[in-house]
Amino acid sequence: MPPIRTKSSRNLVEQEGRILLAIQAIQKQEIGAVRAAARVFDVPESTLRTRLKGSTNRAETRANGHKLTEIEEESLKKWILSMDSRGAPPRPSIVRRMANLLLAARGSTPTTSVGQNWVANFVKRHPELSSRFSRRYDYQRAKCEDPKIIYEWFNLVQKTILQYGIDPDDIYNFDETGFAMGLIATAKIVTRAEYYGRRVLLQPGNRAWVTTIECINASGWALPPCVIFKGKVYIESWFDGRPEDWRFEVSPNGWTSDEIGLRWLEKLFIPSNSSRTKGKYRLLILDGHGSHLTAEFDRICEKNDIIAICMPPHSSHLLQPLDISCFAVLKRAYSRLIESKMRARINHIDKLDFLEAYPSARIEAFKSETIKNSFAAAGLMPYNPD
């Protein structure tokens, strides 16, 4: 049943119609004086004068609480739907951050921002959107549901490639992996036959954490890495003599962060492959880590014709080329190099020792054939969802 309009609302609508007729009559010079037009069309003279100066009808004026224009809200809605279709529906805090980015892009001072409850009201204004709790995705359940979810993800990848005309040589996968610099990975050893259980293997001892961001291309080549050390101050002397195209960062815990992920995208990924891009668009496959597909990250991707797609949760061991092969080879190679240092009576591995060993481990891990086999094993190139 349609809503019943009250008498006051009907009067306002009728008055607005008379105001528009009065404005039209004055503009066409059918009536010369504003006072006369107000009397003829039975509208308040002060309201008519205000409207002639350019003010809009209050009923049509956008509420102050909206903050964004209709065009900005429409673009934000499309971004949310795009993120959802790529397997990364944003949290309300991420939507709020993107709204603040749109406000900041206006360049006005002081910069305004949306409030704590703005996202909830925004969702109410757009019936295409809905707020709901995410579902916990337990690993044991994931093993049962994988076939259906993975098949849907492969359909998304194929649809994206066809929609944007992405060349097979413009498909990338990136992720980070971590090292405790002085710890050796588990390895097969030869020991006494009568001993049961796992033998203890001596370690050099330094457990300081270092993270590396790696990215590979489906045609069989790897981008330069980004190495993140634990520290508060960036010291240039640590990296003397290192490859110039490598990127180095520091963070309080040696892990990646939103800011480091953005700098990697802008300073390393985009410049490193721009000259090798064959088509207009590039496809970047990544997992759902918090520092990966943030609002700022996705915005930079959109500006540079990069289509980012997130893998389903608990599926990187099946779908991510880096996890399937490259990282395992990388860690085994690094462990062998650290073990050789231990045999040479080096009992403490520091940043310089890591930077000496890591390039050799990368050469072994990121061979062209290994990278191509990783994409093939993931079913991405050649495309094989089965």
Rank of each mutant, 00 (worst) to 15 (best):
G290T: 15
R86I: 08
R299G: 05
W246E: 02
P89M: 05
L318I: 10
S8A: 15
Q24F: 06
L223Q: 07
D175G: 06
L102Q: 11
P382R: 10
E296R: 14
E60K: 15
S85A: 15
P89K: 05
A120T: 14
I31A: 03
L380S: 05
L12E: 12
L319S: 01
F41K: 04
N117A: 08
G379V: 08
R192S: 12
E16C: 03
V250Q: 04
R91Y: 12
E356V: 07
S275C: 09
I31M: 06
T50N: 14
W79L: 09
R198F: 07
Q27H: 13
S325H: 10
W264H: 02
R135L: 12
S368G: 15
L283A: 03
T294F: 03
R132H: 13
S274Q: 12
A99R: 01
D175S: 06
W79Y: 04
L129C: 06
R362A: 09
K77T: 12
E60T: 15
P252C: 03
E364L: 09
R199L: 09
S108A: 14
G165L: 08
V227I: 15
Q29G: 08
K78M: 09
Q29S: 15
A333Q: 08
P44G: 06
I150H: 02
Q15I: 09
P44H: 05
W255P: 06
W153G: 00
N57Q: 08
D240L: 11
K28H: 13
F269W: 02
I189T: 14
M98R: 14
V13N: 11
I260L: 09
F375W: 04
R91P: 04
R343H: 10
R247T: 13
N100T: 05
F154M: 05
K67A: 02
Y195N: 08
P271M: 07
N155E: 12
Q29V: 07
D386Q: 14
A377Y: 00
L319D: 00
P204E: 00
R10G: 01
V233W: 03
A59K: 14
G261A: 09
T211F: 00
Y334M: 02
I309S: 01
Q203D: 01
T69H: 07
E30P: 00
A357L: 13
F133N: 12
L183G: 00
L48K: 05
K331T: 07
I371H: 02
F297A: 06
E259L: 12
P243G: 07
R336M: 06
P89S: 05
V227M: 08
I149W: 05
T191G: 14
T160I: 09
A105N: 10
A357G: 08
G54Q: 04
A120V: 08
L355N: 10
R96D: 05
I346Y: 03
I285M: 13
I94C: 10
P204W: 10
L21A: 14
Y196C: 13
W264I: 09
A344E: 13
F133C: 12
W153H: 11
I228T: 01
I171D: 01
K78Q: 13
A377D: 03
P359L: 06
G115A: 11
F375D: 01
Y164F: 14
E73K: 07
A142P: 00
D167E: 13
F248V: 10
P168H: 09
K143C: 11
W221R: 09
E244I: 11
K280C: 10
R343Y: 08
G220D: 03
W246N: 06
S75N: 14
I19E: 11
Q116G: 00
E45V: 13
H292L: 04
V250R: 05
E14A: 15
K230N: 07
